[in-house]
Design a protein around this nucleic acid. Structure first.
Lengths: 340, 340
DNA sequence: TAGTTTACAGAAACCCGTTTCGGTAGAGTT
DNA sequence: AACTCTACCGAAACGGGTTTCTGTAAACTA
């Protein structure tokens, strides 16, 4: 227990100059010794290392990056308030760079483009080495700026400009995979309840769903995707209508896990067993939703961590060379639980 | 559409020297003009401002903070994988500092203390002006370091050292408030289903619940809090047992919204109406859980944004003076929906 | 032994701003 | 006309590192 109040900050960090003095060498030699540069005698290097250890020296990144021209920082601008997408992407980025080697400024623009510009300016003033822009939805978005002095990668929401570099989930393939998974279980009377109809994610998954059914000569119940909202309430009401009209219904692809929960609720109230009578497969694999229900919900995981890791790798590549522009699509995986 | 691939970064940022040359003044004068320092003729200042605007100059924060001794950055070290707590706290901090004025390094330690030290070192090397440490649970934790050169504020999980500065939700008061809310609705046969028994949050809420009942000469059903896990499954099974043993049950305080969902499910299966027969009140106000059910769940919101804003304000205070050490407790608020 | 390499160390320039301090020109004073 | 004051401007030091370039002494070659 220290005697001084913790809010008093007296002690300061050791500087290279102090290390040099203690080791009785010049600043230049100390720097070279610590950075494994050539032309330093082994004994001298050891003296410097000892001195640095004794003073617990670690270099001031400010000064270092000022002369090196690289800061070792990246900015992550997100519009995703909940962090559903941006946090896995942050983790993926940290993994790709290596813990502690690269620090990440997280900026929450809250869907406000003025705030976004503010954050962009701040990041550029701070000389970040690169920027990752994370969208709240997968709809394509306007580029964050033109002719920026640093590389930019768009994650989750791709840039409208095909010359930019973007990484997104492969929604078409995810939709197709979901249907094939149900088909392989022998389900043939399949409905698709999705979210808001102008979401690219909803549209593309629907395309995948339709295409995969067509491959086997089948079609969706009602010959269409039922668009609505991303809520449990919509999942319930849409399912109630399906129950009325389609007694042979045996599988539902749900646009996300919320819809899936709603559908489960409606089916159970109607006395339709899940999964024996109807199989249920959602999207997002949001654990708090999927593992809480009884039966637990199977779900398509869109692999946000992989999106993040790929975005970070691409950014890395752009920092030290050229990267082919365009949109990368990351494959999903199905997490099997009890509902399908 | 640019002709060059977007991954090629040719254009660089303007420097103060270029501004000075364009305005035909010295670097020193340019700096003073841009920073509103004294002893610069109005006409000269204008020339500099024009030049800066023309070159779209904005100062290099690296260099600026190197000479000023302040970086305008703070670190946020979190152990909270889901971002349930750290993201609202990030937003609160951004608000308290002012958008763009202070940039935040978000570091995810993933509950690993080695990774935490890595991040701490990186932050200190980068000369952050302060650090906020966000815990995954409200249990007190070991201080992140001793005699650090920058101020530290602990949010959500307080430091074990009373000389540190911590900000946490007021769990005792939240528990008491929850019970009083139910009592004011005329409920008297109240049970408390909580989460893991060694969570400080669970224990303190339980204390508040018990105390508030005692104020009115009442006790909990079964004379105890039912501890278990933070899951829907536990909420279901605990509620099923309550239903068997207490036909006069008329209110349940649930340790979080998951438990609340589970309780709702069990009650509805038993044909007990919510809220007319039993009122349900959870904690956390996690929208995805509370607004999806039918009826929607009322919940105690622990005001994480306020925790974050207060943490940031305290950090601000510590940077420019002294702050009284100890633990601050932030009051909660009840969000009324349909279940109570 | 004289001449040439080589290995090592340090002075100084540089990165890009801020700030102090000294100098100059013009205005005001007597 | 000589002197003092201001107002304004710029040279230079500074922050804390990295890197180039020069200098020196020891080792090697002939």
């Amino acid at each position: 227990m220290s005697a001084t109040p913790s809010s008093e900050q007296t002690n300061t960090r050791a500087t290279l100059k102090q290390v040099a003095q203690l080791a009785d060498v010049s600043i230049a030699t100390a720097s070279k010794a610590l950075n494994d540069r050539v032309h330093v005698r082994a004994s001298t290097r050891q003296r410097v290392l000892d001195a640095a250890a004794q003073l617990r020296f670690s270099p001031n990144e400010q000064a270092r990056s000022l002369s090196m021209g690289q800061t070792g920082t990246v900015g992550l601008i997100t519009g995703d308030l909940e962090g559903r997408f941006s946090l896995p992407i942050l983790m993926g980025a940290e993994d790709a760079f290596g813990t502690g080697r690269m620090s990440v400024f997280l900026c929450d623009a809250r869907g406000d483009s003025i705030r976004e510009q503010y954050h962009l300016d701040a990041l550029l003033r701070r000389n970040v080495d690169g920027i990752i822009v994370v969208g709240a939805l997968t709809n394509a978005r306007k580029p964050i700026g033109r002719d920026l002095p640093v590389p930019v990668v768009y994650a989750y929401a791709p840039s409208e400009d095909p010359n930019d570099v973007s990484v997104v989930p492969n929604d078409v393939a995810a939709g197709a995979d979901a249907v094939r998974y149900l088909l392989d279980q022998g389900r043939t009377r399949i409905a698709h309840i999705s979210g808001v109809s102008n979401y690219t994610a909803a549209i593309e998954r629907s395309q995948g769903v339709t295409a995969a059914l067509q491959e086997r000569g089948l079609t969706l119940l009602d010959d269409m995707t039922h668009f609505g909202s991303w809520s449990e309430q919509w999942g319930r009401s849409a399912t109630e209508r399906l129950i009325e009209r389609h007694p042979d219904l045996d599988g539902i692809v749900c646009g996300n896990d919320q819809i899936s929960r709603g559908a489960l609720d409606a089916l159970q109230r109607a006395g339709w067993n899940v999964p024996s009578r109807v199989a249920l497969l959602g999207f997002d694999n949001w654990e708090v939703l999927t593992t809480g229900s009884r039966p637990q919900l199977s779900s398509v995981d869109l692999n946000f961590e992989l999106v993040g890791r790929e975005a970070a790798s691409l950014l890395f590549g752009m920092m030290s060379g050229t990267v082919e522009p365009g949109i990368r699509r990351i494959d999903s995986r199905i997490v099997t639980r009890e509902s399908a």
